[in-house]
Design a protein around this nucleic acid. Structure first.
Length: 515
RNA sequence: GGCCCUAUCGUCUAUUGGUUAGGACGCUGCCCUUUCAAGGCGGAAAGCGGGGUUCGACUCCCCGUAGGGCCA
């Protein structure tokens, strides 16, 4: 690596929700910084004032925070190279822009949109690169000033030297562009309003950025930025262009992609764990070189190396993310899992925190839900955190996303189950045989006293009878359905244990009533 | 339209000139099992095409082709 300290940055525009592709870029920047004892900086590129909104900046910070990608310097984390919002850096840009004009490396251009379009059409018809005609290059400073004073609309263009720009991409090797193919580009609307490429070059220099790790979509910006850096007498940083994350159609993931969720906040709301998301996106474009699949953020920091980065785009495979998420859910301590499920239970309207503060807001993972007591919205029955944990435990290995927890354990909070009577009928059974089976179950259950109401004793008592019948399903299936009301659920004994004696027997009676 | 990037199972990937081309997700068969999961053991499934270089190319080079990105 280079001798100067490693400083990398993530430079999102707050013009929309934080994107999963940006999250991965942020992750690789973070890993690179931590791996080489450097700094990770967040810079908000809010030069587009109409589209930039504080709420989107908030969304960016929240998303990074949720993923655990803590930055060392940023808009809300002062460092010595601030401010970290482009809208607050106009004076800096003005200085550089004035210098470019003074040295005649930039000039005012007064060409109209129609004029530019006509010239472009001509070039297209000739099969030539579509570049600016350079018409306004010949304007003297005096003429330009006069036009400006008269209020003529103008932009500032960069006088691009005609030569090849070659640079070494850390991932792709030598990349060469002929500047004649992009011509004199617009670099600013006026002295205080630089466009993306210029602002970027100035900020990266001022913030002492050593390496730029960004998406491949910026590859063609790089020669332009290098040219600008040279014009300003700046040594450009090192570049690395990451491959893109692709949708099912193999196109770049867009903000409104129907096939997969694009927003990081969507993943949070659907009940993906940040550790699963981080693990998953790390593996989109990077691999450890062996067969390992599971990595925590800190393990990634230790393992990460740019040599193992991929050069081609990666299709986002939700099924694999779901699998990973399930894996992380399964190995999570129960108390923590419960704590993370509670917001979803509240949100779905199943339970409400009782004497807790209303701020126990849904989807705030960092809240401590263990201290609250809850009330089932339908039955008004009270539940402690540990009661919820017992229910969730039954479904820990079945959960793929936290949001699914409500429809799995709703049976514990409902007054009466609503299921078709037919569901009670075991596949190797006639409907008419159901009544004696339910009676038998009731008798068996009534024999078990409150003090013995645990999974093991319940199982023992009922399995003895089930074995006698030979076909266990004749007892077990109707029992499970009577207790859960579902085609699929946890086992009948575990449910009965958590449900308690009174409710279990009550549900058997309800099933009998249905016949 | 111009410029640039990329190319191994459906998907994520290993392979850095010599492998029966390995793993994971998904799919699928069996086992376990009251259901659904989880778990265990199997299976199907890949080097874009054509030229070189080389004793030998998935691997290096060139040309196509395809996909993608940026600009317009």
């Amino acid at each position: 690596m280079s001798e100067s300290p490693v400083r990398v940055r993530m430079a999102p525009s707050p013009t929309g929700p934080f994107h999963i592709g940006s999250a991965r870029t942020a992750l690789f920047n973070y890993l690179f910084a931590k791996r080489y004892q450097g700094k990770f900086i967040v810079r908000i590129e809010d030069t587009d004032l109409e589209r930039s909104k504080p709420e989107w900046e908030e969304n960016i910070k929240e998303s990074l925070n949720w993923l655990g990608l803590n930055y060392d310097e940023g808009p809300d984390k002062a460092g010595e190279f601030g401010p970290y919002r482009q809208s607050e850096r106009k004076a800096i840009y003005k200085k550089y822009l004035a210098r470019l004009i003074e040295t005649k490396q930039a000039y005012y251009c007064f060409c109209s949109a129609e004029e530019l379009e006509a010239h472009r059409q001509y070039l297209v018809s000739q099969g030539l690169p579509q570049v600016y005609s350079e018409k306004c290059q010949s304007l003297s400073p005096v003429e330009a000033e006069k036009k400006r004073a008269e209020g003529e609309r103008c932009v500032i263009r960069f006088r691009a030297p005609k030569k090849d720009v070659a640079f070494e991409d850390l991932l792709r090797g030598k990349i060469k562009y002929d500047t004649a193919t992009f011509g004199d580009m617009v670099i600013a609307k006026d002295l205080e309003t630089p466009l993306y490429n210029l602002a970027c070059v100035i900020d990266d220099f001022e913030m002492k950025i050593s390496h730029i790790l960004r998406g491949e979509e910026h590859l063609s910006n790089t020669p332009k930025q290098i040219l600008l850096a040279w014009a300003l007498g700046i040594q450009p940083p090192q570049f690395l262009h990451l491959p893109l994350i692709l949708n099912q159609q193999r196109a770049k993931l867009s903000k409104r992609d129907p096939s997969i969720a694009a927003k990081v906040s969507d993943y949070k709301e659907q009940g993906y764990l940040p550790e699963a998301v981080v693990n998953f996106i790390a593996l989109l474009g990077w691999n450890p070189g062996d067969d390992r699949e599971f990595f925590s953020l800190s393990e990634l920091v230790n393992e990460f190396s740019i040599e193992r980065l991929q050069t081609s785009g990666a299709v986002f495979n939700v099924q694999k993310l779901d699998w990973l998420n399930g894996f992380y859910i399964r190995k999570m301590p129960l108390a923590e899992l419960t704590n993370r499920c509670v917001p979803f239970l509240i949100q779905s309207g199943l339970i409400a925190p009782l004497w807790g503060k209303a701020e126990a807001a849904p989807l705030v993972y960092s809240s401590d839900f263990t201290v609250l007591e809850y009330e089932a919205v339908e039955t008004k029955e009270k539940y402690k955190f540990s009661d919820l944990a017992r229910m969730i435990a039954l479904y820990q290995e079945r959960l793929k996303k936290l949001i699914e927890i409500s429809e799995l354990i709703d049976l514990f909070f409902q007054k009466e189950l609503n299921y078709p009577t037919e569901l009670l009928v075991w596949k190797k059974m006639e409907r008419g045989e159901l009544s004696p089976v339910l009676n038998q179950l009731e008798t068996l259950l009534l024999r078990i006293q409150e003090g013995d109401w645990i999974k093991e004793k319940l199982e023992k008592a009922i399995m003895v009878e089930a074995e006698k019948i030979g076909d266990r399903g004749r007892l077990l299936w109707p029992l499970r359905v009577a207790l859960s009301g579902k085609t699929a659920s946890a086992g009948p004994f575990e449910i009965a244990e958590v449900l308690g004696r009174r409710k279990t027997i009550q549900r058997i009676k309800e099933a009998q009533k249905k016949l």
